[in-house]
């Protein structure tokens, strides 16, 4: 848009203080955390003596953090697969012009409006080994002894206790991918599908050869957004399970909170938070660059 030089200067002047505050609170604070992560501040009183990478070294050699990283990877993997596949499936059902579509959509999406705290309280009871879903199975006459989120059983590094958390998180976020896919499906020109049908293509063929390739970019966006949510996960695990026996349901976000605000290990907590930031940045930065570049062209 055309804009007088003077106007542009005013705009920048208005923008500047707001950006300054934001950048201090984001980048200034990140730098500050980074600085703390290299110190020996591991008690109530700040101690800014530099110890190099000691906090990081200690973290990577600690069993708790190793478990956390493993849990994050498995959780992200299952969470993504369930949300992408399930979300596409649901959106496809809605796309097929079912009656009561708006009712169905409302139901699929409502968990998104809830807090992770509410979800956590709710699902903690549902999966509570003695009283929850197990007792429902027992009422139906099955023997049910699975410990859910208290189980310490592990298959190839995957702590099965995570299943309860994965189900709860997917319950909440399936609607999100559903909404994204539905928007994408609605954007596909009807003629494209109609002409394929005239050519005699069946529903499966149309889905496979026409729809799926067209919604690929959406799948990618959904993966990025959900992926970064699961890398940061804290609220749900904190409320629903805590770190669990032998850390079966522990995550870096939880470890950071506990070691910082319970154990007063500030430097260690800062180091964890920096690692989390790097993980998220690896996912988000390339995505941001590519979308914003595409935007301006």
């Amino acid at each position: 848009m055309y804009c007088a030089k003077k106007d542009r200067r005013i705009a920048v002047l208005i923008l500047l203080p707001m950006l300054l505050v934001l950048f201090i609170f984001v980048y200034g604070f990140i730098a500050w955390s980074l600085r703390i992560s290299f110190t020996d501040w591991n008690s109530i009183l700040p101690n800014m003596t530099s110890v190099g990478f000691e906090n990081y070294q200690r973290l990577f050699s600690s069993q708790r953090f190793q478990t956390d990283i493993r849990n994050t990877i498995f959780f992200t993997l299952f969470f993504l697969v369930i949300c992408i596949v399930g979300g596409f499936f649901l959106s496809y059902l809605l796309y097929s012009k079912l009656r009561g579509e708006s009712f169905l959509r409302t139901i699929y999406l409502f968990p998104l409006s809830l807090s992770f705290v509410v979800t956590g309280v709710l699902w903690r009871w549902i999966f509570s080994p003695e009283v929850g879903i197990n007792s429902l199975f027992r009422m139906m006459g099955f023997e049910a002894t699975f410990g859910w989120f208290t189980s310490t059983y592990s298959i190839g590094g995957f702590n099965v206790a995570l299943i309860a958390l994965i189900i709860a998180a997917s319950w909440q976020y399936l609607g999100y991918t559903m909404a994204m896919f539905l928007a994408g499906l609605r954007g596909i020109p009807d003629q494209l599908i109609e002409s394929a049908q005239i050519d005699g293509a069946g529903e499966l063929a149309i889905t496979w050869y026409i729809i799926l390739p067209l919604i690929k970019p959406i799948t990618f966006s959904a993966m990025i957004v959900l992926g970064h949510i699961s890398l940061k996960i804290f609220d749900l695990a904190y409320v629903m399970t805590g770190k669990g026996p032998a850390f079966v349901t522990d995550f870096p976000g939880l470890f950071m909170f506990e070691t910082t605000f319970r154990g007063n290990h500030y430097a260690e907590g800062a180091a964890i938070s920096i690692i989390m930031l790097i993980l998220v940045a690896v996912v988000i930065v390339p995505y941001l660059i590519s979308t914003l570049r595409g935007d301006s062209e």
């Binding site: 509570s128 080994p129 003695e130 002894t145 410990g147 989120f149 208290t150 310490t152 669990g244 026996p245």
Partner: peptide, 9 residues
């Protein structure tokens, strides 16, 4: 080896 199964919960 002698504890209740649901101890962790």
């Amino acid at each position: 080896g002698y504890i209740n199964r649901d101890h962790a919960a």
